[in-house]
């Protein structure tokens, strides 16, 4: 029983991480009708930006309290990746819209490779896995075989807060209204006076910053990061967004938790070979897509944002 509960706790943690990645996929699809395949690698860049910030903080301000360190690492990672997202959108994705959609797909796949290889080649000792520091105190609560780690709890609540903030931005701000308008009818939004380019760049900054949080979360959860971590995270985030119905933010969040749930079932059902959990989860995703091609909570007309 304790073991099952433990699995569920871990699954919730992973689900939050996947949801944060999936939100980016679905936001970008919403405003531009594109799949940004490099988004997983954006998450990876977020982890490494966080790690570099930590190194710098650690050598410059050794006595910095843990809370400040986490906050600064997160802010620096988010800012770096948001800037990256803006540059990628403005220099590559918006100009490529004049051509066929497949070109964007291919270009972002190649961009993903460029990002991965850049970290591998240019980050100090980038080809080897890097230890990600435990930024928060290692307190934990034990009940029988159940372990609840304090840092995981903080990360989970942080993720929930981020999702709440995204929800508020989309539904309660002028920018959010513009994002929804562009997603529903780009040209009508322009005619209403929406600055299309600004909305696209802001959306990429938002989706990428959320991905940076997922990246730091990933590093703190596994205590280790490597240059290729974005490949799997990208595939998972994309699957999660598709399960929920591309373009639907709440669907993407749900999809993230469903994917983690599937992985957990896979791990529980096949305990002798936990590596099969991904095979099980992706297999189940294929079945879900065959059953509900437009996503679990999308409407037939392909709902947007």
């Amino acid at each position: 029983m304790d073991l099952l509960l433990q699995y569920c706790l871990n699954g919730l943690m992973l689900g939050m991480m996947y949801a944060l990645v999936a939100v980016g996929f679905t936001l970008f699809f919403g405003v531009l009708d594109v799949i940004v395949f490099s988004h997983g690698d954006t998450v990876m860049i977020g982890s490494f930006a966080g790690l570099a910030t930590y190194w710098w903080l650690h050598s410059t301000y050794p006595g910095l309290p843990a809370g400040w360190a986490v906050l600064l690492v997160l802010l620096a990672a988010a800012a770096t990746v948001a800037l990256l997202g803006i540059i990628v959108a403005d220099a590559m994705i918006v100009p490529l819209r004049k051509g066929p959609a497949l070109n964007t797909l291919l270009a972002t796949m190649m961009l993903g490779t460029v990002l991965r290889e850049s970290i591998r080649l240019f980050f100090p000792d980038g080809s080897n896995p890097q230890t990600f520091p435990a930024l928060l105190p290692g307190w934990s609560w034990r009940g029988g075989n159940l372990i609840l780690r304090f840092d995981n709890l903080v990360l989970f609540c942080g993720g929930a807060l981020i999702i709440f903030l995204v929800h508020m931005i989309i539904n309660r701000t002028r920018l959010g209204m513009a994002i929804r308008a562009v997603a529903q009818d780009e040209e009508a939004a322009r005619i209403m006076g929406v600055n299309f380019r600004f909305v696209v760049l802001a959306t990429f900054a938002l989706g990428s910053a959320v991905a940076a949080f997922a990246g730091v979360m990933n590093g703190m959860y596994y205590s280790e990061i490597n240059f290729s971590v974005g490949l799997l995270l990208g595939a998972i985030g994309f699957s999660a967004a598709v399960i929920g119905g591309l373009g639907n933010i709440y669907g993407a969040i749900l999809g993230g938790f469903i994917f983690a749930f599937l992985q957990t079932i896979g791990a529980v059902a096949i305990p002798f070979a936990s590596a099969y959990k991904d095979v099980f989860a992706f297999g189940a995703v294929i079945l879900i897509m065959a059953w509900r091609p437009t996503g679990l909570i999308a409407e037939p007309s392909s709902q947007r944002v």
Binding site: Q184, I191, G193, N195, R304
Partner: peptide, 28 residues
């Protein structure tokens, strides 16, 4: 000029086919 700048000068349009935002409330 970009469309949003032209709109900013005081031109509005009721487009053909209405082009309302279907997932927004009437007030939005």
């Amino acid at each position: 000029a970009p469309t949003h700048a032209i709109v900013g000068k005081g031109i509005a349009c009721i487009p053909e086919g209405r082009r309302i935002f279907p997932k927004m409330s009437a007030q939005e």
